[in-house]
Amino acid sequence: MRRLLSFSCGKAELAASLDGGRGVTGLLMVTGGGQTRAGSHRMYERLAKALSESDIPCFRFDRRGVGDSEGEDPGFRGSGPDIAAAARAFRAAAPGLKRIVGFGLCDGASALALFGMDAGLDGIVLVNPWLVEAEADSPPPAAIRRHYRQRLLSREGWRELLTGAVDYRKLFKGVRKIAAADRGSPLALDVAAALRTSRLRSWLILCEGDATAIAAEAELKGSAFKGLIEGRETIPSDSHTFARPGDEAALLAATLRALKALGA
């Protein structure tokens, strides 16, 4: 059963939704960007409903300045107080809970990694996490690298290269981005440091063709993340928000497995 409620974060009143369940582990859902608690394509709403039907309580909220909530939007790097206040409100609204696992998409995942310990969470599920702050209107370098690798390994790619169908200026621009890709991301290092300090149990869900997920995977292979991610799921989709046919069911199944693996 779904309930609408509100809670305080500083001087602001925040809007939330609780999809109930009889389970003792709840999922605190944190959206990415400026998305409301429904999520893109109502992704969060649908996932919460499905999990609730499996007796997993789900709490969604609009952070300050987003959707139905008051205040000014602090961005994901300033959302620690929002997440902590939401966790307290979740516990108050569902007193039977023994554990809370965070679930975040994109920079919502980054926020959970950065602030999950302060919110008293017992684990986090990081979905297509935002770990590389790329230039405006430009995909992350790791996504560019994969694009050109696939082009140059294909027969069609070589045909375009040899017949002059390739825009060489665009090609060289992409190559320059690839050359600069291995310097590492400050955001990824911040996330890794936070996870190492908090020791939060963490699980990863990636869409294999999503540019944000490709960039995250490149960062996660670095030594900074060694031993920090307990496990992972890969979904064969290029949709960042799981909007392709079959994505919704795949995300639900992956989330259930993640919760089981995290001891929920």
Rank of each mutant, 00 (worst) to 15 (best):
R22I: 07
Q150W: 07
A87D: 14
L259F: 05
L121T: 06
K170N: 10
S198N: 15
R145Y: 07
A86G: 14
C207D: 06
R183P: 01
R63M: 11
R196Q: 14
E230F: 04
G21I: 06
P57N: 13
A254H: 01
R149A: 08
A165Y: 08
L4S: 15
A192S: 12
T234P: 00
G108K: 05
A165M: 07
L47F: 01
D73Q: 02
L171K: 14
K11T: 12
L252N: 00
R183S: 09
L131G: 03
R3F: 10
E208K: 04
L162K: 07
R176Y: 12
R244E: 04
E208Y: 03
K49Q: 02
W203Y: 06
Y44T: 06
S239N: 04
C106H: 05
A85Y: 13
A165L: 11
S40F: 02
L28Q: 12
R37T: 06
G227I: 00
A215G: 15
L97P: 09
S8R: 15
G209I: 00
D167S: 10
L251H: 01
I124P: 04
R176N: 12
K226T: 13
E13G: 07
A193N: 13
S198F: 14
F90C: 12
V101H: 05
R176T: 10
C9L: 10
A180P: 02
D182Q: 09
V101G: 06
G71N: 00
P140N: 08
W203D: 00
E72Q: 09
F90K: 14
A253N: 01
E133P: 01
A113E: 12
C106M: 03
A119T: 07
A92L: 10
R145S: 05
I214R: 06
Q35T: 06
D210P: 02
S69L: 02
F225M: 02
R169L: 15
T255A: 01
V24C: 15
L161C: 14
A87L: 13
I214H: 07
A86T: 11
S8I: 10
I83R: 06
A15Q: 07
I56A: 05
A38L: 10
V166N: 04
F76L: 14
L121A: 08
G39T: 04
L131N: 02
S6Y: 13
R60E: 09
K221R: 11
G23H: 15
K11I: 04
G164Y: 09
M43K: 07
A258R: 00
P81L: 11
L14I: 10
A224T: 04
V132K: 05
D190K: 15
C207Q: 04
G10A: 13
T234V: 04
E230I: 01
S52R: 05
D210Y: 01
A216M: 03
E156I: 12
S17G: 13
E217D: 09
R22A: 15
G20W: 10
G246S: 03
K226A: 14
F242P: 00
A94S: 15
E248C: 00
L47K: 00
A38N: 08
I100N: 14
F103K: 01
A250G: 00
L18N: 12
G108L: 02
L27V: 10
L206H: 03
G108A: 03
A179H: 12
A264Q: 05
A243T: 04
H240D: 08
K11A: 13
G108P: 02
D122V: 04
P139G: 08
A193Q: 13
L262W: 01
R77I: 06
R151F: 09
R64I: 05
